[in-house]
Amino acid sequence: MNESNRLPAEDRFSLNPMYLFRWEPTQDAHVLLYPEGIVKLNRTAADIIEHCDGRSGAAIVAALQARYPGDDDTVATGVYKFLEVFRAKGWIRRQA
């Protein structure tokens, strides 16, 4: 997969400061709240966003690999793919 190459592992990711990310008991899920919007996250998305606290792509991958031991390459590819989708949606920000 070339997609993961588009996101250098050294880039740092953080939640868009306008967004609120938290566990919501009435939805039994994590949610993102922001101006005019509500998004209910599935477990994978929540796992990744939870780690978007200014750490690098490589560090997020490492954290997810530790949480889901097994196929490290699949986890890495998946994380980078999700990060790009989240960035495109404006949920997270990337700093080189």
Partner: peptide, 17 residues
């Protein structure tokens, strides 16, 4: 809530807004 608002979840009968 407005046209253009984003709600990516079913309300499941709850008054989300």
């Amino acid at each position: 809530p407005k046209d253009g608002s984003v709600v990516r979840l079913d309300g499941q009968g709850k008054p989300l807004w």
